[in-house]
């Protein structure tokens, strides 16, 4: 039996191939973590934050360190520090663990989009070995959490679109909010979602009636309207409530996107109550 036949036999068993690919991704990331030096840009700021967070709490941390840094990475590192693990090791551990989920995400997205398991396995393989993804996974940076979280958010979105499920859109909103607390660029995803809903509604209704306001009362149209409005409501509600929770929990953390908005809301509430 030659080499090509062995490969063909492995590829026939999709689950085993996927597990092998994910293991390859983990091994590559661990090798990279061992051989790389640890003196990464900005990471000393996160280490200091994590140690302060574990010892004195969030408010002390944000009053003494850079206030513009999102809380997810220092928080996870502080959890590790409380258990006696170096912040650096915790950061790399979460980077590798989340980074090795990328092949799964790529597999699911491509399988749902193209409906071909062989191409999905190939996408998982690329996700496991892509040099940029391998290299970023083992660095103590916010990106090593942000990129896998975005991949998971994409999976949630694809699953929600496939099954027309409001629950999965809620899960998408939760993951996107986590991504926002890893890097503030995550807020783009809410804009992406809003644009997508707009595009879908336009395509659905304009395509059907040639006129955007000529909505008939057919059951299919009503189900569509219910689905989009419920998805919109749940995504925005979960997103805003989680942001509000973080805004009040870590009041000194300056989120350049939400802080201005919440401070306006705060001042309005204050002015109402003082009157």
């Amino acid at each position: 039996m030659d080499f090509i036949h062995i490969l063909k036999n492995i590829a026939k068993n999709k689950a085993a191939s996927l597990i092998l690919i994910v293991l390859l991704g983990i091994v590559l990331r661990i090798i990279r973590a061992i051989e790389m030096n640890r003196y990464d840009v900005d990471c000393y700021i996160y280490f200091n934050m994590a140690i302060n967070w574990a010892n004195y709490g969030a408010n002390y941390t944000y009053s003494n360190c850079l206030q513009t840094i999102p809380p997810l990475l220092p928080f996870l590192m502080s959890l590790g520090y409380k258990l006696g693990i170096q912040p650096e090791i915790t950061g790399i551990f979460f980077g590798i663990m989340l980074g090795s989920l990328i092949p799964f995400c790529m597999f699911y997205i491509v399988k749902t989009l193209l409906k071909r398991a062989d191409l999905a396995l190939l996408a998982a393989f690329f996700g496991a070995i892509h040099p940029s993804l391998v290299r970023i996974s083992v660095r103590c940076l916010r990106d090593s959490l942000y990129i896998p979280l975005i991949a998971i958010a994409l999976v949630c979105a694809v699953a929600a679109i496939k099954n027309r499920s409001v629950v999965k859109w809620s899960l998408f909103s939760f993951v996107v909010t986590l991504a926002c607390f890893a890097r503030y660029e995550g807020y783009e995803f809410i804009i992406i979602f809003l644009i997508w809903v707009f595009v879908e509604i336009v395509i659905k209704f304009v395509g059907k009636h040639n006129h955007p306001f000529a909505i008939t009362h057919s059951p299919a149209t009503i189900i569509d309207i219910k689905y989009y409005s419920c998805s919109l409501f749940f995504v925005l509600a979960i997103f805003l409530s989680l942001n509000l929770f973080v805004y009040y929990s870590f009041s000194l953390c300056q989120n350049r996107y939400t802080s201005p908005f919440f401070s306006i809301v705060n001042s309005i509430i204050d002015s109402i109550f003082t009157k």
Partner: peptide
């Protein structure tokens, strides 16, 4: 930094498999 662009990597991987065949 190049790492700001790594979210696009996910898109490139998804569409590279179409080009593969």
């Amino acid at each position: 930094n190049a790492r700001y662009l790594y979210t696009l990597t996910l898109f490139f991987i998804i569409f590279s498999v179409i080009g593969f065949s």
